[in-house]
Computed example of a mutant assay.
Amino acid sequence: MSVWSYKGKRVVVAGCFSGMGEATARELVALGAEVHGVDIKESPVPLASFTKIDLRDPASIDAAVEAIGGEIDALFNCAGLPQTFPAIEVMKVNYIGMRYWTEKWLPRIRKGGAIGIITSTAGMGHMLHAREIGELIAIPDFADAVAWAEAHPDLVGDGYAFSKEVSSFWTMLMGTITIKQGVRINCVAPGPTETPMMPDFESVASAKMIDVFIQPINRRSKAVEQAYPLIFLNSDAASFINGHILNVDGGFVGGVMTGQIDIQGSIEKAMASI
């Protein structure tokens, strides 16, 4: 079988209702995978099964894992909340619940399998908060992790950027752990992407501010342009990629890190034009 193929593979996609998760699920179906999806709303994709889930609730996560059951070859974590929701709910869905869900699936992922997570370039500052993130990651219990987040409101902020920082850092850390059972874990960090969530981001930061982060390609991504690299990372073609954050951002992070993009100046210019 081709390393690019998903024929005969059993996979689960979290967040398959819309946006990047829907695009991922739809493409996986086209590639021949047996796709089981979960979300808080039913997916329009013709799936092998759909199960309703609320990542804010451990009991809902437990029930969804049991409902799907069996072993899988790959897990795709595409669910997320924007910062228009309460910060603690954002933390639950984007990191705490996602982690709990992933760890519930880990014993069921076949050797040679993979986990792919959607984070964000909003989490590119994860190393600046490495000590604090390490404290949170060291807490395995769902309720205790929520309590930690509630006790650090200044650090958590609106929940979005910090949850993506933690998810990115956790991906790198878990790469040294999951590989011991033959399972790789990676994430994609998208730049601004046209999904049904975009109006929420624009209501908080404005379209001009968001477009600071589309440099140097100067356009927003399509949802499927994020699905393709995520599907690659979980394929056999990526068998030696593990614990990696793949920036799918048109070159933004590279431009910032090499000094080609003046992010502070760009933000000030955008703010002046609002």
Rank of each mutant, 00 (worst) to 15 (best):
M1Y: 11
V3G: 13
V3L: 15
K9C: 10
A14L: 12
S18G: 08
S18T: 12
T24V: 02
E27G: 04
A30L: 12
A30C: 07
L31W: 05
G32Y: 07
G32R: 08
E34W: 02
E34K: 08
G37P: 04
V38S: 12
V38Y: 07
K41S: 15
S43P: 10
I53Y: 06
I53H: 01
D54F: 09
P58V: 03
E66K: 15
A67P: 00
I68M: 04
E71W: 06
D73I: 04
F76G: 00
N77Y: 08
G80V: 04
P82S: 14
T84F: 03
P86M: 08
P86Y: 11
I88W: 01
E89V: 09
M91G: 07
V93A: 02
V93G: 03
I96N: 06
G97N: 07
R99A: 08
K104M: 09
W105I: 09
P107Q: 07
I109A: 02
I109C: 02
K111F: 10
G112Y: 00
G112F: 00
A114E: 10
I115K: 00
G116R: 10
I117T: 14
S120D: 05
A122K: 04
G123M: 02
G125Q: 13
A130Y: 13
A130V: 15
I133N: 03
I133P: 01
G134R: 03
L136M: 11
D141Q: 01
W148A: 02
W148H: 01
P153Y: 00
L155C: 06
G159H: 03
F162W: 01
S163N: 04
K164Q: 09
W170C: 04
M172P: 05
L173F: 13
M174C: 11
I179L: 08
Q181W: 07
Q181H: 13
Q181M: 09
N186P: 07
N186M: 08
V188Q: 06
V188P: 10
P190W: 01
G191V: 01
G191C: 03
P192K: 03
T193D: 06
M197F: 11
M197Q: 14
M197Y: 09
M197R: 11
S206W: 04
S206I: 08
S206V: 10
M209D: 10
I210W: 12
I210H: 11
I214E: 05
P216S: 05
R219P: 06
S221R: 13
S221V: 06
K222G: 06
V224A: 15
Y228Q: 14
Y228A: 15
P229N: 02
P229D: 08
I231W: 08
L233M: 08
N234W: 10
S235E: 08
S235W: 00
F240W: 13
I241D: 03
H244L: 08
V248F: 07
G250H: 01
F252A: 10
G254T: 10
M257T: 14
I263L: 13
G265N: 02
S266D: 10
I267Y: 05
E268P: 00
K269D: 14
K269G: 03
A272M: 05
A272E: 12
I274F: 09
